[in-house]
Design a protein around this nucleic acid. Structure first.
Lengths: 104, 104
DNA sequence: TTGACAGGCAACCAAATGGTTGCATATTAG
DNA sequence: CTAATATGCAACCATTTGGTTGCCTGTCAA
């Protein structure tokens, strides 16, 4: 879980996910196109995404195809965000009351 | 949005959110209790959470009360995670096919 | 078989991050 | 008033991070 949050913390990596979301199964070269980064920087980002299991890669000859793995994002949504969403209105109320200045 | 992801990237900060989720409106001192960190470290984490608008603080005399703001987490869920969840089964299928080795 | 193409590896670097210590300030209780 | 309490501020430090350059390896096509 920590690795997933860390991986998502960087805008370049979220952009890579977006690109794979737009078109899955891209090669490293394709993913690099139009990005203001060297290929090696992209490689590093992809390694981190793979480390978090957000991206799974597969070799085809000399190419490396990258696929999104939707499972970790789903887990974040279910196990983590869900927990907070459950008490969302309660928290909003508490916050509002606190900001309105009522003591206790 | 970037600030929210960055804020959530650190386990200590997620822990602080958890603590506020368990009991909202805690002071800095209360939040420090039992943590393996100095008060100043906690202060810094809280500043980052406030910067991301995940936590809103209010002074009461010499104390500072901290409240969760559920809005940013909700936005992440809606605008970001939702986008990926919508094509989740499609992505899972593509991933499975890719891993099974079928070329193209 | 020999380029050219796709990618991997390693060293290096600057800046950001997470943490510390020490001291200053503001508020409240006696 | 004064001491204790709650927090703020600033300098400093080690490690991590995001990026680079340079070179090596593997694969495909002519």
């Amino acid at each position: 879980m920590d690795a997933v949050f860390k991986a998502l913390a960087d805008a370049s990596r979220r952009q890579l996910l977006d690109r794979l979301h737009a078109e899955n199964g891209q090669t490293l070269g394709e993913l690099c196109k139009g990005l203001d980064m060297t290929r090696q920087a992209v490689t590093k980002h992809l390694a981190i995404l793979e480390g978090a299991n957000l991206v799974v890669a597969r070799r085809r000859g000399r190419e490396k195809l990258h696929y999104i793995n939707p499972v970790p994002i789903n887990e974040i949504a279910e196990r983590w965000i869900g927990k907070y969403e459950r008490h969302r209105l309660k928290a909003l109320g508490e916050l509002k009351r606190a900001l309105e200045g009522s003591d206790e």
